[in-house]
Design a protein around this nucleic acid. Sequence first.
DNA 1: GCAAATTAATGATTTATTCAAG
DNA 2: CTTGAATAAATCATTAATTTGC
Lengths: 234, 234
Amino acid sequence: MRVHHFHVAYLDKPAAASSSTAETSSTAHPFPSSAAVFPFALRCLRPLAPKLSLPEQPKKMVAPADVLGRVRNATKLLSCTVRNHTVQVPVGGTTRWNPSAEQIKMLEALYRGGMRTPNAAQIERITEELGKHGRIEGKNVFYWFQNHKARERQKQKRAALLTLSTLDSPALPQTTATTKVTSKQQEASDDVPSSKRRCTAWGNNGHGDAAATTTSTGGNATLELFPLRPQGRA
Amino acid sequence: MRVHHFHVAYLDKPAAASSSTAETSSTAHPFPSSAAVFPFALRCLRPLAPKLSLPEQPKKMVAPADVLGRVRNATKLLSCTVRNHTVQVPVGGTTRWNPSAEQIKMLEALYRGGMRTPNAAQIERITEELGKHGRIEGKNVFYWFQNHKARERQKQKRAALLTLSTLDSPALPQTTATTKVTSKQQEASDDVPSSKRRCTAWGNNGHGDAAATTTSTGGNATLELFPLRPQGRA
DNA sequence: GCAAATTAATGATTTATTCAAG
DNA sequence: CTTGAATAAATCATTAATTTGC
């Protein structure tokens, strides 16, 4: 288990310890950086990933922030001293960016225009511009594009699968066995550049991983994932 | 082969007494001590190459006729013999495919789903299916994808440039060189990220430190500022 | 009507992968 | 083989919608 690099921390923003134990030490930020120290660790905030459907785990319980001290996103923390302990409570209005209609409109326009992963300069510019219509930070722009891209992809993949499923009928015998196809993929073109997921998407759903399931419907183990165009190229 | 993730959420990690993801903890000297790392590239040199399409591939698209064994472009051919040569004359009014609304819909769905350059097998299947909604041949499908891809790209490029130009106002200082990036950079980025597109530091809003980030590439005199790249298309 | 309770969206983080330098 | 950089996928968490009982 390797310690992964962690990026995506943003500047001027504490972003207090997220889901894991908040036993943090102090930060190295030049800032006050209110990395919250939470004396009461009551209730574990869920071990980070199980997700294995614990039947009756009351995982839903979304307790009010003021109780659990969700500081994750707080913009500011106020220190108070209680029985010799200094606790910090989130203060300040909203913590999460709430885009205005205008901002969304503009962002979507950019997206439609083809922008997907704006670089720093672009983000800066966009932020500056959108700032005229409401509070916004560069990271908001960054995240917006990330999320939007990912979710659009999801949506479309679903739609495509659906459509394909209707096209799926013939139960192609799948002549050409597998074909390595290398991994080079073809030009990934514009959208959905992801290297391989895309293949799985088109790989003809049968999949379900390995042979295990397969069954009748699609003996079609692997439809050549993305064998390039006819007559293939290199 | 590569069964990819699906996220296993390995168990020994959770509480991971091991102090969670550092965040604030100790060292973590990723590099510029200057606080957080940007989510957005500070200096990127790598196109993340799913789009390696450039290197080789002198190969031009091969007309589907080669693959599907279709004749050029005619719905029907009438054979005539002229001077010992059998020639075929297109017959029956239009020779050009006129996609039905349904066909277009389906093709677009596929496109949105990420399909760009279907292989022969896929084309066959698609053709077969779309054939239920009107006359169509494999080459039509093939050409449709080619054209659609190219035109979408064009459209979006234009739109993006337009949109960006409106956001361009700030008249960014950018005094230092660079301004000539334009043509070359843009063209290159457009479609294929050719080799390297550099990103610039997006100086975190409030705090300079820009210098710190440049470091390694700092010697680099060029520091190009506006790659302005319509990242992929929609 | 309306406020608690649910659910749907979506902003913000973390984890996994990938490619290519070293 | 290891590691930096960049990004996509997965996940977490909060806010807006929507539903529901009164």
